[in-house]
Write a protein that binds this DNA or RNA. Structure first.
Lengths: 200, 200
DNA sequence: CCTCGTTATTTACGACGTAAACTTATAATG
DNA sequence: CATTATAAGTTTACGTCGTAAATAACGAGG
């Protein structure tokens, strides 16, 4: 039999392809990520990736997973950069916004509304879970320090929904021109903190 | 010269096509909305729509505008159905959620992240502005009744970001399975109301 | 009735995702 | 060491997409 692909070789190709896809995304936008361009980028024929991925959706799931991984890295670094709970939340929030705005093509892809069920892609579940876990950890800090009360997972999701909602409205061009996006984020965070602190 | 198209005939065709597109969206999902299927639905050749629309993006902009129009209608009806400001906000919120979940294909399209600049489509600007105006009106109610303080436009956007964020996370399948979407929305609204009411 | 301008259809092009047929190269077997 | 089975990779091909260009159909003015 011929040189069978070692798992390491498979993994290496998958990563090279993933990196090429991210480069195309970042430099030429989503419409540049086609099987043919991807193949050209790797100096390989358009059908070769099908040895390593089921189909294009499978590739996109891998790219999303990789995006969530970098996203989680960024938030974890921010988390460790502060100690005061509110400062931690602010730092994580800043890292979140920074990622969403600076790598907005990745962010769009990661939260695309017409993606196939994430449950079919275990590495994507793992990576997005890691990002979510950071937000829960940050919420726990707020609770433990008495800045908020309630279920950490629910509180994390309240803050997350707010941040994400403002960002995607901004990215979709739906915010009123009279509202400054970053002022909106500040006002949202302040308001939520006040609401979360109340003890009635 | 031949029967020249009267503006009324043009408008009639545009509306018929728009309705057909909405039907395809709702019944067979976004991938069914192709020029060829659209044409078949109208009993016309695939190139005919190009007499009435610049290109497919132009058609999608019209469908979005129509979606925003129905969306604004639903919220306006909810707005008028109550008098107490908090009840008005809740009713408008319920109408919002109802629309997003029951006509989720339309909602997805309306807030798609990779749509062309909305400013190029005046009727879309008008329709989405009408929806936004409803949220500002509802925020004004909260302020006038002393339930909130601050700029109505900013407050409207805070509430909007929260609602939209939670919904798109839900639609994208990103919410933790341990968090119930509608419980999350209730908790978010409660928290925001508390935060907005504080006078410090 | 013929002609011209307008509307609609037909045909055609290049790009897409990917199935199927084919080629190439190697590693195990005789 | 030559043979051969088989995995890896390429080529070709199909059906679909959006839409440009060529063509046909047709109705009002001369």
């Amino acid at each position: 039999m011929p040189r069978a692909l070692s798992p390491a070789q498979v993994e290496e190709f998958r990563e090279r392809l993933c990196a090429a896809a991210e480069r195309l995304f970042a430099e030429h936008g989503p419409e540049a990520v086609t099987m043919r361009q991807l193949a050209a980028e790797l100096g390989v024929s358009p059908m070769t990736p099908y040895r390593y991925f089921k189909d294009k959706d499978d590739i996109l799931a891998a790219v999303r997973a990789s995006g969530f991984s970098r996203f989680a890295d960024a938030m974890e670094a921010a988390f460790r950069s502060e100690t005061d709970p509110v400062a931690v939340s602010e730092a994580v929030g800043r890292a979140y916004v920074r990622f969403a705005l600076e790598q907005s093509d990745a962010y769009r892809l990661m939260f695309d509304l017409s993606q196939p069920n994430e449950a079919d892609y275990p590495e994507l579940v793992a990576a997005s879970g890691r990002a979510r876990e950071m937000m829960v950890a940050q919420a726990r800090g707020l609770i433990d320090s008495g800045q908020a009360r309630g279920d950490p997972e629910v509180i994390a999701h309240i803050l997350w929904a707010n941040l994400h909602g403002g960002l995607v409205l901004q990215l979709a061009g739906k915010l009123s021109p009279r509202v400054d996006p970053s002022a909106l984020r500040r006002a949202s965070f302040q308001t939520l903190l006040k609401g979360l602190a109340r003890d009635d």
